[in-house]
Write a protein that binds this DNA or RNA. Structure first.
Lengths: 212, 212
DNA sequence: CCTACCGATCGGTAGG
DNA sequence: CCTACCGATCGGTAGG
């Protein structure tokens, strides 16, 4: 069950690498700086990964796993429909608001790899697409069960949700404006108010369907 | 009136530098690559600027000037109120939609310099803040003159407009999804519909107040 | 996991 | 505007 020593070192390196990549971007992650932080030689760090690219992809996988644990998995435990969609948005926003201090790899990576082909871009695109598709499914279920107006465009709704979260990162982390998380919440509330079904049959009853 | 030869060379270098910085980011702009593109030696390029940082700031100023020419100045010729605010958004969106191919320095720079202190960050923040403040003034005028509901939060409106534009860049340039510009337009239309004053006195009459 | 390297590239300088 | 450099740093390798 317990890790071998080599595995522990590798995990410790990845942990620091994720920290550095969050701050400086995946492309700013260098083996030299990583070795310095670990008090190891460059080749000592390098030996745990086949190449710098492999290291970057491992960092990305670690990030993706944590995102799923914190945002995706808890959300799909909520009742289908609006409660689940709101849980997805709220947990996502909560995570990004914490990342104002450290940086969000999905958002910085989108800019770093928008014109840089290769395996890292492909892995990153697949992860972000998967999250958007999960949001689209969540929105579509909220429409299908009658929480949101019939005829609502699920992808348009997700597009606007994504914009609200991108704006948090931009205004808070770059411009350092206050109150951006609150603005995103207000934007989402207005969005849901717009698309809410006035004669909802309340197919989703969070109290009733929660696992208790 | 005419440029000296040195000034022409300098302008030609800056033009190519802006092209490279749009694609690879300001931080990805290197003197070596720039010299290569210009068929000049590194030191030949270098001699036109005191340092790499000065070159980057000059590129930023060039970009800023073009943004003002294309987006800001034509918009403030429109009548105060909703017409002007709509012109600002539409011209801005038009420019970003063209930049899907080349990259937008305001947006990529926001990620590159969110945690990198120095004169480049300061210059970039000042420019983006200035544009947001211009948008806030435009929104506030639309509220004050009665085009938008009294009590509308101008900064909240601008926050959501900014998110719509950031999402164009993200979804079109990074994810390469189709139809994103149309989604931004629809999002803005819904936004204005929400905040529009139902009993507007039409203080702004574009036909009457246009300069003719 | 280390030392000791490699070639390439970085920003920048000297001297013309 | 050039050639010819500088020290620093990059990813990566050899050999142990």
């Amino acid at each position: 069950m317990s890790m071998r020593k080599g595995e522990m070192t590798r995990a410790a390196i990845l942990d620091v690498a994720l920290e550095l990549a969050s701050r400086d971007g995946l492309e700013g992650l260098t083996i030299g700086l990583l070795a310095d932080r670990m008090n190891m030689s460059k080749s000592g760090v390098f030996a745990h990964f086949g190449s710098r690219e492999d290291l970057q992809i491992e960092v990305l996988r670690l990030y993706h796993g944590r995102f799923e644990q914190e945002v995706f998995f808890p959300s799909i435990k909520e009742a289908r429909g609006l409660p689940r969609l709101e849980a997805m948005f709220n947990r996502w926003l909560k995570r990004v608001s914490v990342e104002i201090a450290s940086g969000c790899i999905y958002i910085s990576g989108a800019v770093e790899y928008d014109d840089r082909p290769g395996p890292i871009r492909e892995a990153l695109v697949a992860m972000v697409r998967a999250w958007q598709e999960a949001l689209v499914r969540g929105a579509q279920q909220a429409i299908d069960c009658g929480d949101l107006k019939p005829g609502t465009d699920a992808r348009q709704l997700v597009y606007e949700m994504y914009g609200l979260v991108l704006a948090v990162h931009h205004d808070a982390r770059f411009l350092r404006l206050p109150g951006t998380v609150e603005r995103a919440h207000r934007g989402f509330a207005r969005l849901i108010e717009d698309y809410r079904n006035p004669n909802s049959k309340q197919c989703s009853q969070p109290e009733a369907s929660a696992l208790k």
